[in-house]
Design a protein around this nucleic acid. Sequence first.
DNA 1: CGGGATCCAAACAGATACTG
DNA 2: CAGTATCTGTTTGGATCCCG
Lengths: 130, 130
Amino acid sequence: MNSSYSHKTIQPDISLSICGYSKVLEIVSNKWTALVVYAMEDGVIRYGEIRRRIEGISKKMLTQTLRQLERNGLVKRVITPSVPPIVEYSLTGLGESLLEPMRTLNQWTKENYSLVEQARENYDRDNSGE
Amino acid sequence: MNSSYSHKTIQPDISLSICGYSKVLEIVSNKWTALVVYAMEDGVIRYGEIRRRIEGISKKMLTQTLRQLERNGLVKRVITPSVPPIVEYSLTGLGESLLEPMRTLNQWTKENYSLVEQARENYDRDNSGE
DNA sequence: CGGGATCCAAACAGATACTG
DNA sequence: CAGTATCTGTTTGGATCCCG
């Protein structure tokens, strides 16, 4: 008789591909994604205006981020082929549905981030000289 | 007179460092972090058991992930210096407070991820042959 | 204006071997 | 058991130049 039984209920394995946490994070966890979504919170916005509003983002990264969001169905892209062209972005219904969980995260930050910063200071102090 | 006034209220710039979205994501968006937190949801757990439960994680990445979580004050580490040593991890109060926003994300995935997958198929089909 | 293409540096992640 | 150290490959991000 082996000892593989447990006093606890047996916990299932956690797979990267099936964990819901990981799946959303794959969608929103790139460096700029959250900011881009944030920039579209108020409605339709042009490419150039997003760039101006997000400090430090390069054209390459903005385009790449927008393409991924579009591919995932979170963002809609409308081109007016004038000269120069006008390209307008906005959240889809699916994209807007993401705002609620994002705001929950945002709220957590407002309430708890100072504690995180404090914890970091403590940790760095305690682990610097040994 | 220049044309810098707008019919909209002027939107503030968005900075990577002050956006609440970005701050939490910096904490939880590493590849394995969400899984590790998930593994501790039910209480105290040993290093080796986390490894067994999370499919595919290496010792290096698990240790690194746990150290970051500890540094950010989300995880507590208790060593019992026996031979061999016993090292137990658990969420701190701060760590547990993160579970709620994480569950909100998880819930969003359950409800909407199939739409994301469908959007991807559509996008890839529409953009493959042109 | 709104990109695409290319190149390069830095960050991240895995495999392997060694340790108290 | 619970790590650390090192090496290597992969991914990401930024800078630059070009285009309709």
